[in-house]
C-alpha cells in the first residue's frame, strides 16, 4: 500500500531519451531506462532492438558477477509483446546470472512462444552448462519457480513427469509453482486436485507465501478458491488482483454482457474488499 511507484516523476523521461539513455555511458541511467521502457510499455521497434542488445551487455556487473542491466532488459521484453525478443531471451536462459535466467523464463511465458520449451526443460533438469546458482541461501541451482510457471503457462504437457517431483520440493514457493503448472497441464476434473492444494496453502503462516499463492490462484483463475481468497489474511489489493484473475477466467465462458453465476459471485466478493 505504501510502496506504489511514483509515476509522475517517471513520466518526465521521454521515449527518445530512454532509448538514448539505454545506449549511453551512464550505467545507472541505462538500468533505469531498461526498466522504464517496460513499465510504460514502450513497444517501438527501436526500443525492442536496444533492449535485445542490452541482453548481451558486459559493462554492468555486480561484485559477484551478476548482470543488472540484462535482468531489467529481460523483464522489460516480457511486457512488450514483440516476438523478435524470443531467440535472444532463449539465449538468456543460458546466462550465468541466476536472476537473468529467472527474468527470461518469466518473459518467455508472457510472450507465449512455445519454442523455448526444450530449453526450459533442460534448465529444469539443471543440464545447461555455465549457469551459476543463486548467490544467496539456499543457493538454488535454477529459478525453478519461474521455470515451472513458464512450462505450465506455455502448455508443456510433455514436461509433466519432470514437474511432479517438484510438488514435494523443500521450498514451499517451488511446490506452489509446481501445483500451479500441474493445474494448467492437467485435464479438468483431475486438475482441481492441484487447485485445492493451492487453496490449502492460503492458510500458510508466512505472509510472503500467502501473497505468492494469491498470485498463483489468480493466474490460473481457479473459481473454487474465491471465498478462501476473500478471507485470506493479506492486503486487499492483492486479494482483489487474485479475484480479478478468477473473474476474467469466468468471462471467457460467456458472451458479453451475460455473466455466469461464478462471475457474479466473484464480483460480489470483490465489492466487499474495495
Amino acid at each position: 500500500m505504501a510502496n506504489e511507484p511514483d509515476i509522475q516523476s517517471d513520466s518526465l523521461l521521454t521515449v527518445e531519451q530512454a532509448i538514448a539513455n539505454l545506449q549511453g555511458a551512464d550505467l545507472g541511467l541505462r538500468v533505469y531506462a531498461a526498466w522504464w521502457l517496460g513499465r510504460f510499455r514502450v513497444d517501438a521497434p527501436e526500443a525492442i532492438s536496444v533492449l535485445i542488445a542490452a541482453l548481451e551487455d558486459e559493462d554492468d556487473r555486480t561484485e559477484v558477477g551478476g548482470y543488472p542491466l540484462r535482468r531489467n532488459a529481460a523483464r522489460a521484453l516480457g511486457k512488450l509483446s514483440d516476438r523478435r525478443a524470443v531467440s535472444a531471451l532463449v539465449q538468456a536462459l543460458g546466462c550465468s546470472d541466476f536472476y537473468v535466467r529467472e527474468a527470461a523464463a518469466q518473459s518467455l511465458e508472457q510472450l507465449g512462444d512455445r519454442s523455448c520449451i526444450p530449453v526450459l526443460i533442460r534448465l529444469l533438469n539443471d543440464q545447461v552448462p555455465g549457469t551459476l546458482p543463486a548467490p544467496e541461501p539456499p543457493q538454488l541451482a535454477q529459478p525453478f519457480d519461474a521455470i515451472l510457471e513458464a512450462l505450465g503457462g506455455l502448455g508443456a504437457v510433455d514436461a509433466i513427469p519432470l514437474i511432479v517431483p517438484f510438488l514435494d520440493h523443500f521450498i514451499p514457493r517451488v511446490q506452489y509453482a509446481a501445483a500451479r503448472a500441474m493445474y494448467q497441464l492437467t485435464p479438468s476434473p483431475q486438475a482441481n486436485h492441484y487447485g485445492d492444494r493451492l487453496v490449502k496453502a492460503l492458510a500458510n503462516d508466512d505472509l510472503q507465501l500467502r501473497r505468492a499463492v494469491l498470485a498463483d490462484l489468480g493466474a490460473i483463475g481457479y473459481l473454487p478458491a474465491a471465498e478462501t481468497i476473500a478471507q485470506t489474511l493479506a492486503e486487499n489489493s492483492l486479494k482483489l488482483i487474485a479475484l480479478k484473475g478468477l473473474l476474467e477466467t469466468q468471462l471467457q465462458h460467456t458472451t458479453p454482457p451475460n455473466l455466469s453465476q461464478g462471475a457474479i459471485k466473484v464480483m460480489t466478493l470483490m465489492d466487499e474488499l474495495l
Binding site: 480479478k244 476474467e248 468471462l251 458479453p256 454482457p257 462471475a263 470483490m270
Partner: peptide, 17 residues
C-alpha cells in the same frame, strides 16, 4: 462497457446495468 481496457471493469458495469 464498450471502451474500458479492463474486462473486470466492463463486467462490473454489466452487473450494475
Amino acid at each position: 462497457a464498450l471502451n474500458d481496457d479492463s474486462w473486470a471493469v466492463r463486467a462490473r458495469v454489466w452487473m450494475a446495468q
